[in-house]
């Protein structure tokens, strides 16, 4: 089991004229936690989204567990079930209760029976600290609670890898920690994670590697401590000096 879980091999993507991903090569080991950092518009979200094919790529290959991503249809849906995703804007299903948000995937995709799915969902909601909100609707929860539910919803599919796209950027400061704590827990539990975030505290505590992106390219990658204290490229130094200022 030493072959990497996720491999991006010479991946290129264009949005019209914009070369948003430029020859990306990246391999993520099982249990590894990779933090992706970089200025706004550098392609971090796009990179994240190509791994579960919410965005298609124009060149190169992406494999999960040695298998190339399916192009479409049922096979693609099955692939997405193996890749958990947490969005900046939570995207909980607004018309479903918290419990239903978590059970929908297991019931409709995995064919789990309702009672078993609910039991698992309640355990997951307890684990992320919102077990007592199960019967409410998303709009009735705080942002931090909603994001923790979104994590539980993704975990319910028992994914091989979890993608987080700026999971705390839409949160009020006092709620950031409760979400990061859940993520640190996950990381320490051995989950393979790709996390787009500017939270240096999280990167230092939980990440095995920091990948710095700018203008669609991976400019630099290193361990968190090395990267934050001793960035090599001018772009990274410049970027770090800006986020450290505020």
């Amino acid at each position: 089991m030493t072959e990497p879980l996720v491999v991006l091999d010479h991946v290129d993507k264009w949005f019209g004229e914009l070369h948003v991903l430029q020859d990306i090569n990246m391999s993520i080991a099982r249990g590894e936690v990779v933090v992706v950092i970089g200025p706004s518009g550098s392609g971090k979200s796009t990179l994240c989204r190509t791994i579960n094919r919410l965005e298609t790529i124009d060149k190169g290959t992406i494999t999960l567990d040695g298998k190339p991503l399916p192009a479409e249809g049922k096979a693609l849906a099955a692939h997405r079930a193996e890749v958990g995703m947490v969005f900046q804007s939570f995207n909980l299903f607004a018309h479903k209760t918290i419990l239903e948000n978590v059970t929908l995937g297991p019931i409709k995709v995995r064919g789990t029976d309702k009672a078993a799915a609910e039991k698992q969902a309640r355990q997951l909601l307890d684990r992320v600290g919102v077990g007592n909100q199960a019967d409410k609707y998303p709009a009735q929860l705080s942002g931090g609670q909603q994001q923790r539910v979104a994590i539980a919803r993704a975990l319910a599919m028992e994914p091989k890898v979890m993608l987080f796209d700026e999971p705390t950027s839409a949160l009020d400061p006092e709620m950031i920690k409760e979400v990061l704590d859940v993520m640190v827990d996950l990381a320490q539990g051995g989950m393979t994670m790709v996390v787009v975030t500017h939270e240096m505290g999280f990167a230092r505590t939980a990440a095995d590697r920091v990948v710095f992106m700018a203008d669609g390219q991976v400019v630099e990658e290193n361990t968190p401590d090395e990267f934050f204290s001793n960035a090599q490229s001018g772009r990274a130094q410049d970027f770090l000096s800006k986020i450290l200022k505020h």
């Binding site: 579960n52 997405r80 958990g84 995703m85 969005f87 995207n91 299903f93 995709v109």
Partner: peptide, 14 residues
Amino acid sequence: SLGQAEAARAIGLT
């Protein structure tokens, strides 16, 4: 919102 459909596809719904 587009995010609703994306979240649905992301958990593997067809």
